[in-house]
Design a protein around this nucleic acid. Structure first.
Length: 312
DNA sequence: ACTATTTCCTGGATGC
DNA sequence: TGCATCCAGGAAATAG
């Protein structure tokens, strides 16, 4: 499941492969009725746009788009309303149900970034760059034809992923980037919060990008039990957590993320941080520090792993 | 303003 | 073998 390190890895890979490429046409799968207009918006914003950059914000992948010279403006793009990708599996060659409603619209000059394509991979979402003739996988919800001749496809079996369009700079990714947070603002995030520290770490409005795996791993390294109320943790311990979070994320990024279930990056490469997990997915196995069996409990519906001896 | 709970979704694992 | 059930999990929606 892509959390910050996986998304970072994917975004870097994509940046290398599709930056500068132009989106010629877009196919979007059928969506469950309510958000049809958004699909039009997405197609309109993407088509004839150049991908300037690809980067990560929290767990989101952000494609910065700029209009191709002389191509019509996509019209005003509203706030980033999330869209549920289509549910219908494309058969054969996808036709393109895009809106071409803008004929005589004023041409734009060489503009800087005008819009952003925001992709959240959910749990099972993947973006693949491939040749047009390669097999369209089941659960493919979007296909972008690129000027380079390749295709950028969004595949997501479990459909927790989200696609949306934001106006440039208008995308609100939530809380602060954990890797940028200084100690004081990090500590301030938890002041007065009665929620378990694990829940606070997962709250994207506080920190963006930390998910279940890295929350558990960070808490282990900081010696804090996941159920500890955030407000009861003293500053020095939070300082420890501050360090642990950054350390865990940096190590994971360096190893290309954690590959559990079927995660692979943009190049189809697996990550290797799962080999460094000290508590996540190790229920009953001995703690690597003290040999006490790792416990698993459920917090807010999320399985949480910790060492009852090392974490207080 | 917070916090806790429910819901979405499918494939894989488990159980009978 | 087949069928039902459970589980994984991010974040939005709902309830308290």
């Amino acid at each position: 499941m892509p959390e910050l390190p996986e998304v970072e890895t994917i975004a870097r890979g994509l940046a290398k492969r599709v930056s500068g490429d132009v989106i010629e046409s877009v196919w979007l799968g059928q969506k469950p009725e309510p958000l049809k207009s958004t699909a039009q918006e997405i197609a309109a914003a993407l088509e004839h746009s150049r991908i300037a950059t690809v980067r990560r914000m929290g767990k989101h992948i952000v494609f910065d788009l700029e209009r191709e010279n002389g191509s019509p403006s996509p019209g005003k793009v509203r706030k980033p309303k999330a869209m549920r990708p289509g549910s219908v599996v494309p058969t054969g060659l996808p036709s393109v149900p895009h809106a071409k409603a803008h004929k005589g619209v004023r041409p734009t000059r060489s503009n800087p970034t005008e819009a952003q394509w925001i992709v959240h991979l959910g749990m099972t979402g993947r973006l693949q760059v491939c040749e047009p003739q390669s097999e369209v996988l089941k659960h493919t919800h979007a296909i972008l034809k690129l000027a380079s001749g390749r295709e950028l496809r969004f595949v997501d079996p479990r459909r927790f992923g989200r696609l949306s369009i934001a106006t440039a700079g208008g995308f609100d990714a939530g809380g602060m980037e954990p890797l940028d947070a200084d100690l004081d603002s990090f500590v301030a995030l938890f002041r007065g919060r009665k929620t378990p520290i694990k829940s606070a770490l997962l709250n994207q409005k506080l920190l963006r990008g930390v998910g279940n795996i890295y929350a558990d791993e960070s808490l282990f390294r900081a010696g804090i039990r996941p159920r500890r109320r955030a407000s009861t943790i003293v500053r020095v311990r939070l300082a420890k957590l501050h360090m642990s979070v950054k350390e865990v994320l940096r190590e994971a990024i360096a190893l290309g993320g954690s590959s559990i279930s079927d995660y692979v990056d943009a190049d189809g490469q697996e990550g290797f941080f799962q080999l460094r997990h000290r508590v996540y997915g190790r229920e009953g196995e001995p703690c690597l520090v003290c040999k006490t069996p790792i416990k698993r409990i459920v917090i807010a519906g999320r399985s949480s792993h910790y060492c009852p001896a090392c974490q207080k």
